[in-house]
Computed example of a mutant assay.
Amino acid sequence: MSPGQIAALVAAGAFVLLVLFLAIVLIKLGRALDEMTIAIRKAHENSDPLFAGANTTLNHVNTQLERVDGITSNARAVTGNVSALTSLFTATLGGPLVKAAAFSYGVSKAVRARRKRKAEAQAEGRHSRRRGGKR
C-alpha cells in the first residue's frame, strides 16, 4: 500500500466517524424537538381554562370598578352639597354667632372684673376696720 492509499483510508475513517458523530447529534436533537413539541401542545391545551378564568376575573373586576365609580361620583356629590351647606351656614348664621359670642365674652369679662373690684373693696374695708381707721 502506498502512502496515498493509507492517507485515503485514514480520511475515509475520519469521515465515517464524523458522520456517526453528526448522526448521534441529529438523533438527540430530534428527540429534544419532539419533547418540546409535546410540551408546547400540553401548554396550549391547558391554557384555554386559564384564559377563561382570567376573562371571568377581569369581568368581575370591571363590574366592581363600575360600582366604585358610582360610589365615588355619589361621594363627590355629597361633598359638594356639604360644601354648599357650610357656605350657606357661614353666610347666614356665622356673622351673628360671632357677634353674639363676642358680646357674651365681653359681658362675662366685665362681670368678673366688677366682682373682683367688689371683693377687693370688701377686703380693704375689713382690713381698715381692724386698724381702727376709716378710709
Rank of each mutant, 00 (worst) to 15 (best):
K118V: 08
L97F: 10
R117T: 11
A91S: 13
R130K: 14
R130Y: 15
A110G: 02
G132E: 10
A100L: 13
L88H: 15
K118R: 15
L97K: 01
S108C: 09
R112C: 02
L93D: 10
A101D: 09
R112H: 01
R117W: 03
E124H: 10
K118W: 03
A110M: 00
F89N: 09
S108M: 11
Y105H: 05
S108N: 06
A110I: 04
A101S: 06
R126K: 08
K118F: 05
E120G: 09
K116D: 13
R117N: 15
R114S: 15
A119M: 06
R126M: 06
E120T: 05
K99A: 07
K118G: 11
K109E: 02
R129T: 09
E120M: 07
R130S: 15
R130Q: 15
K116Q: 13
A119W: 03
A110F: 03
A91M: 14
A110W: 02
Q122E: 11
A100P: 00
F103Y: 11
G125L: 14
S108K: 06
K116M: 08
L93P: 02
R126W: 02
P96V: 05
G125F: 10
A110E: 02
R117P: 01
Y105W: 05
V98W: 00
R131T: 10
K99C: 04
R126V: 12
L93T: 11
G95A: 14
A102H: 03
P96E: 13
L93H: 06
R126Y: 03
R112F: 07
P96I: 13
R115T: 06
K109R: 13
A91L: 15
G132W: 06
E124N: 07
V107K: 10
F103D: 03
H127Q: 09
R130H: 15
R115G: 03
K109Y: 02
A91F: 15
R129A: 11
Y105A: 00
Q122I: 08
G125D: 04
S104P: 01
R130M: 10
H127W: 15
K118D: 09
A123P: 01
A102G: 00
F103W: 08
Q122T: 04
A102K: 00
H127T: 15
R129D: 06
A102D: 05
R117H: 07
K99W: 03
V107I: 12
L88Y: 09
V98A: 14
G94I: 04
H127F: 15
V111H: 01
L97H: 07
A100S: 08
R130E: 10
S87W: 08
R131M: 08
S87N: 11
R129M: 14
G95H: 09
V107S: 07
V98S: 14
A121W: 06
A123K: 12
L97Y: 04
G125K: 10
R126N: 12
S128L: 15
E124W: 10
F103C: 00
V107P: 01
A110R: 01
F89E: 08
F89I: 15
L97A: 14
G125A: 14
P96G: 04
A121R: 07
S104V: 07
